[in-house]
Simulated scan of single mutants.
Amino acid sequence: MKYMLLVYGAETCWTPESREDCMRKSMAICEELEKEGKLIAASPLQSISTSKTVRVREGKPLVTTGPFAETTEQLGGYYILDVATEEEALAIAARIPPASVGCVEVRPLDHLPQ
């Protein structure tokens, strides 16, 4: 079963040192999952200051700067996993360092009809 883990946290909660430590620990988890054949993709996202939101209204695109909603926590990265059970996905999510200062949302991927 494929799951997406969405990593949320406040961008301001990290010092440069704690961010580097988080990245190092996260990369080690990625390497482990890749060796086990469970990692499909993972990546941190750039700052929300680089984001744009697109809405189409009356057939015309409207592009605004920033995320869709103002919140205290922002989407900071993701993992896409292929694991046997939801419990395994949840256990991996609990190991991801940002879970200790933010949260990790675990959602199964849906299948597109062919």
Rank of each mutant, 00 (worst) to 15 (best):
K52M: 13
G66E: 07
F68Y: 15
E70I: 14
V56T: 09
T72A: 14
V56C: 10
T53P: 01
E86G: 11
V83Q: 06
P67Q: 08
I92N: 07
K52W: 11
S100H: 13
A99N: 09
P67D: 15
Q46P: 01
P44W: 03
A99M: 15
R55V: 06
L62K: 09
F68V: 14
T65Q: 04
K60Y: 09
F68W: 13
S47C: 05
L81C: 11
S51F: 13
I48P: 06
A84Y: 14
Q46G: 13
Y78K: 04
Q46A: 12
Y78S: 00
T72V: 15
P44M: 13
E86W: 15
A99V: 15
P61L: 00
T85K: 01
A99L: 10
G76C: 05
Q74Y: 12
T64M: 07
P98F: 08
L81M: 14
P61K: 00
G76W: 08
Q46H: 12
G77W: 11
R55Q: 10
V101M: 09
E73Y: 02
A99I: 15
P98I: 01
T71P: 03
L81P: 01
E88Y: 07
G66K: 04
V63T: 08
E58A: 00
D82R: 12
S47M: 03
A69I: 15
P67F: 11
I48Y: 06
T53E: 08
I80Y: 00
L81H: 01
G66T: 07
Q74I: 15
E58H: 05
R57G: 09
A93W: 00
E86Q: 15
